[in-house]
Design a protein around this nucleic acid. Structure first.
Lengths: 206, 206
DNA sequence: GTCTATAGAAGGATAGAC
DNA sequence: GTCTATCCTTCTATAGAC
C-alpha cells in the first residue's frame, strides 16, 4: 500500500467518522462524507464497498478505542476511591472532547445489538472480576459488594458519568431556567460523583 | 370531526409513534407508517402535511406525557426518601413498558435541541424548586443541598434510573459474560438505587 | 487510483378520480 | 375522506474513461 493510498483511505475514514457520529447511520450521506474527505463518491465505494461496510469499520474502531481507555482502572496501585475517581476523570475528559460519541454508540448499538458482541468478542474479560476481587477483597467484604451488588454499583458509576453528556440538551434547557451553567456543573462533576459514589458504598457497611 | 376521521387520524398517529420510536426520524419510512396504520401514503399527507410535521406531533405528545408522570414527586406527604423511591419506581415501571422511549427522546433532542425548549416552554417550573425547599428545608440544610449541589444530585438520580435502559444492549452483553440476568438486575434496581442515593445524600452530613 | 456520468431504487410529496 | 398513479428528488452503487 503506497503512502498516497493510505492518505486517501485515512481521509475517508476520518470524514466518515465525523459524519456518522454527527448524523448517525441513517442520517449520514455518502456525498457529505466524500465532500469532507475532498474526494468523490465513487472513491468511497472503491475503498469500502458499501455504506454499511464503511459504517462497520468506523464503529468497530471507535468502540474498541473507547474500551481501551479504561484498562488503567485495574492498576493495582490505586485504592478503591482512587479507581473510582480515575474512571470518572477519564470518562469526563474523554466526553468533553467528544460529547456526541456516547449517544452515537448507544444509538447504533440499540439498533443492532450484535455490534456490541462483536466488539467484546476479542476482549479478555474473564479475569477482570477476579482482579478486582483480589485487589479489593477486604473492601468488597466490608461493604457487601458481591456478584449481585457489583453490577448495580458499576452501572451506577457508568450512569453518573455518561448520562450528563447524553442528556446534555435536556439538562441545559432545565438548567437555563434555574440559572445554572452546564460547563460549571461539568467542572464539578468528577469531585461530586467520586464523593457521592464512595460515600454510598461506604455506608453499606453495617 | 367525525368518529371515522378521528379513528383514522388516531390510527396514523399511533402507527407513526411506533415507527418513529423504533427507527428514529431518519430511519422511519412513511410507507411503513401507512402500512401499519392500514392506509396509504397519500392519506398521511392529507392529515399531516409532511413527515416533519407528523414527527413533531408525535414527539411533542410523547415528551409531554413523560413529564406529566412525575408531578406526584412533589406530593408533600412523602418524605425525601419516599420521593426518591417514588421517582425510581415511576421511571422504572414506565421504561419497562416502553424501553426504547428514553433513547428515542435523547436522540432526537440531541439532533434538534430546540425541541426541549418547546416542550418546557408551557410548563410551570418556577415554583418547583421552592416547593422542594419548603417541604425539605431542614434536610437540605443538614445535608448541604443547595443550588450548587441539587443539580448534581438530581442528574445523578435521573442517570441511575434511565441509563440502564438506554445502555441495555451493552449491559446485557457484558452481564452475559458474567452470568448476570438483566431482568433480575432491573427487579432489584429500585431498591438498590433508592438506598444508594439516600445513603449518599445522608453521608453529606458532617 | 481517481474521475465523470449514470443507472437503479427508494422515498417524500402531490394530482386527480371517486 | 380515501384511493391509484405518478412526479421529482435524493441516495447508493456501478460502469467506464483516463
Amino acid at each position: 500500500m503506497t503512502e498516497l493510498e493510505k492518505q486517501t483511505e485515512e481521509k475517508i475514514f476520518e470524514a466518515a467518522t465525523d459524519v456518522f457520529i454527527e448524523k448517525g447511520m441513517d442520517g449520514a450521506r455518502m456525498q457529505e462524507i466524500a465532500d469532507r474527505a475532498g474526494i468523490n463518491k465513487a472513491l468511497l465505494h472503491y475503498y469500502y464497498r458499501s455504506k454499511e461496510k464503511l459504517f462497520d469499520a468506523v464503529f468497530t474502531i471507535i468502540a474498541k478505542q473507547m474500551l481501551k481507555r479504561f484498562a488503567p482502572v485495574f492498576d493495582e496501585n490505586l485504592t478503591l476511591e482512587e479507581k473510582i475517581r480515575f474512571y470518572y476523570q477519564q470518562q469526563t475528559d474523554f466526553m468533553k472532547r467528544s460529547p456526541r460519541l456516547p449517544l452515537f454508540i448507544l444509538n447504533e448499538v440499540s439498533r443492532n445489538p450484535q455490534r456490541v458482541k462483536n466488539v467484546l468478542k476479542h476482549m479478555d474479560h474473564t479475569n477482570l472480576l477476579k482482579i478486582l476481587e483480589e485487589q479489593h477483597g477486604d473492601e468488597f467484604a466490608r461493604y457487601k459488594i458481591n456478584r449481585e451488588t457489583l453490577p448495580q454499583i458499576m452501572t451506577s458509576i457508568a450512569a453518573m458519568s455518561i448520562f450528563p453528556f447524553v442528556a446534555k440538551p435536556i439538562i441545559e434547557a432545565i438548567f437555563e431556567k434555574f440559572g445554572t451553567n452546564f460547563n460549571e456543573y461539568i467542572e464539578r462533576r468528577v469531585d461530586f460523583a467520586t464523593a457521592f459514589t464512595y460515600n454510598a458504598i461506604k455506608s453499606r457497611e453495617k
